[in-house]
Nucleic acid binder design. Structure first.
Lengths: 300, 300
DNA sequence: CCTACCCCCAAGCCATACTTATGGCATGGA
DNA sequence: TCCATGCCATAAGTATGGCTTGGGGGTAGG
C-alpha cells in the first residue's frame, strides 16, 4: 500500500525505490504482486516512468484514506504512550478516596494534564471484585494486622504505607486526657463501642480479645462522620483509622493513640500486566509518591 | 491488523488462531510485535482469554475503519475486473465515430451496462497523439494504401478491416451511370476535384498519378457532408470512403466503385499493456466484433 | 486433586522478500 | 547512425522473518 502510494507520488518505480531506500526490482515485485491480486494493471509502464490506470487511481484514493487512518491510529497510541491521553479508573476505600487519592490525582494532573482519571469509592472486597471484572485499573485497599491481604493469584499487590488506628472518645470521657499520649484499650473495656465496616469490626473484636476483654459493640457503620457524631454525643467510643480522621475530624471528639494496636496496611492492587500501561503506571507512581510522604512505611 | 481484529472479535488469542487457521503462538507473536511497536499493551491476558486495554480499543476502532476501507477498495477493483464498472476513452476518426463506433458502443453497453465509454472525434494523427498523452485508451485510425501505418514503437496496432473508396459524382455527370459498376478514375481526369483530409488528399493525388493524370483539386475539407453538398451542386467530383457515405449519404449524388483504387485500412491502437485492463479489452473486443461484420478483412 | 484451557517461551524449518546481476526498450544527443 | 542514459522486467541467490512443534506455568472448574 505504502509502496503503491510512493509509486504514484514519484511517478516511477525507480523513483519510489529511491524514496523508500530500496532497490528498483523490490518495488517492481511488490507492484506486480499487488496487480496480481487486484486482477488488473494498476499502472501503465511508459518510457519515462509509469502512469496510473483507472484502477490505480481508484486504489490510490483508498490507499490515501487508509494511510490517513493509520496515521491517526499511531498518533492516538503515541498520545497514550506519551501520557498526553489515556484513562485510569481507580477504586479506593472511602477514607483514602477522601485524602490520599485526591492528592495523588492532583499530582498526576500536574504531571500529565491530558490524563483522564476516574475514581469510585469501594470497600476493599468490592474494589478487588471490580478489578477482577476489569471495571477499574487500580484498587486501593487495606487490611488490618492479622487479616489476610487481598489479591488472589494474578493480581499484583503493592504495599502503600500504614494507617495507624486511633481511639476516639467523647471529650467528656474520663480517658479523654492528653491527645498524644497512648491509651490502653482496657481503659475502655466497660464502654459502649461503635464498630466500622465488617472487617474493621472483626479486627476490633480480635484486638480487644487480645487485650483481655470483649467490647460491647452496640453500633456499627463504615461512615466515619456518623461514627464521630455518635461519639461526640457521648453515645460510644470507637477505633478509627487516622485517614478517616484526616478526611473529616469532628472537633467535638477527643483522639488518642491506641497502645499495642497495630496499624492497618494500605495496598494498591492491579493486574500484573496493567503496570505496562503508561497511564496506569504513572497513576500508580503518583499514588505511591503520595503515600510514601503521608504514611509510615509498612513494618511487616 | 486483521489479526488484532480477530483477537478482539473472538476474545482470545487461541480463538483468533482457530479463526485464522493458524497456531496460537503465531497469533501471539503477531500481537506481541504489534504491542511492541505500539509501545503499550493492547490486551490484558486473563485466564479465560484476553481483554482489550484502552489502547487496544482505540486501535480496534481504527482497525475497523481501515478494514472497511480495504473492503471498499477490493470491491471497487473487483467491479472493474468484472466489468461492472470502468471507463474507456476512445478516439476515432469522424466517419468511424459516426458508424462503427456507435454500433460497438451499443454492443458493449449490452454486454456490460456498467461501463462508461467516452468517445472523442480525432483524425488519426491527433488520435495517436492523444493515445501517447494518455488521454484516451483506444485510438481508431486508418491509413490509405501505400501510407505508413501509425503507431511508433510501444503502441500495439490491430487491423480492423478495410474501407473501400467510392467515386462520388453529381447525378448529372456523364459518368454517373450504373451504381455498382466500377468506374475508371481516368474518366474524371478533366473534372474539378474536392479533396479530403490531408492524408486523404495525398492519397488521391498519388492514386491519380498512378492512373496517369494530375487531378485538378480546387476544394478541400474533411467534412464529408460538405463534400457531398458541393458535389451535389455539380461543383466537383470526389473520392469518399464508404464509411463516410454510410454516415451521411446525400441523396443528390451518384456513387460508383473506383476501379483499381485500393481501400483504406482501419486500425485500432492501444498501449501494449492496456489490453490487460478489463474495460479496455472488452471495448476492443466489441469494436473488432463490429468491424469484422461490417467491413472486409484487410488483404495486405 | 486433577483435567482442561489459555497463554508464554525456545528452537527449528520453511517461505517470503530483498538484493545483485543482466537484458530489453525507448529517448536524446554527438 | 551510434552511443549514452533511464526506466522497467527477469532470474538467481541469500537472509530475514514468520510459522510450526514441543514444553511449561498458571488459573478456573469438576
Amino acid at each position: 500500500m505504502l509502496i503503491f502510494r510512493e509509486i504514484a507520488r514519484t511517478g516511477s518505480i525507480a523513483g519510489a525505490a529511491r524514496g523508500l531506500g530500496w532497490t528498483q526490482p523490490a518495488v517492481s515485485q511488490h507492484l506486480r504482486h499487488l496487480e496480481r491480486q487486484a486482477g488488473t494493471p494498476l499502472v501503465l509502464r511508459r518510457p519515462r516512468g509509469v502512469q496510473l490506470t483507472e484502477a490505480g487511481r481508484a486504489l490510490l484514493r483508498h490507499a490515501d484514506a487508509i494511510a490517513t487512518r493509520v496515521q491517526a491510529a499511531t498518533a492516538d497510541l503515541e498520545a497514550m504512550v506519551q501520557l498526553r491521553a489515556g484513562t485510569v479508573r481507580l477504586a479506593a476505600f472511602p477514607s483514602a478516596g477522601a485524602t490520599l487519592i485526591p492528592a495523588a490525582m492532583s499530582l498526576l494532573a500536574e504531571r500529565h494534564p491530558g490524563l483522564d482519571v476516574r475514581l469510585r469509592a469501594a470497600e476493599p472486597p468490592q474494589a478487588v471484585a471490580q478489578l477482577d471484572a476489569g471495571e477499574v485499573d487500580l484498587a486501593i485497599t487495606f487490611t488490618h494486622a492479622g487479616q489476610t491481604p487481598p489479591g488472589t493469584g494474578e493480581l499484583t499487590r503493592i504495599p502503600a504505607g500504614q494507617d495507624p488506628l486511633r481511639l476516639v472518645l467523647p471529650r467528656t470521657h474520663p480517658s479523654a486526657g492528653p491527645p498524644d499520649t497512648p491509651l490502653d484499650l482496657r481503659a475502655l473495656a466497660d464502654d459502649t463501642w461503635i464498630g466500622g465496616c465488617e472487617r474493621c469490626t472483626a479486627h476490633l473484636l480480635q484486638t480487644c480479645e487480645l487485650a483481655g476483654f470483649t467490647p460491647d459493640i452496640r453500633h456499627g457503620t463504615d461512615d466515619y462522620v456518623l461514627t464521630q457524631a455518635l461519639i461526640a454525643r457521648g453515645l460510644a467510643v470507637g477505633l478509627l483509622p487516622q485517614l478517616a480522621l484526616d478526611a473529616a475530624r469532628d472537633p467535638r471528639v477527643a483522639v488518642r493513640p491506641a497502645l499495642d494496636v497495630r496499624p492497618r496496611t494500605l495496598y494498591v492492587l492491579h493486574h500484573r500486566e496493567a503496570e505496562q500501561i503508561p497511564a496506569v503506571r504513572s497513576a500508580l507512581r503518583a499514588i505511591l509518591d503520595i503515600t510514601a510522604t503521608h504514611t509510615p512505611a509498612p513494618t511487616g
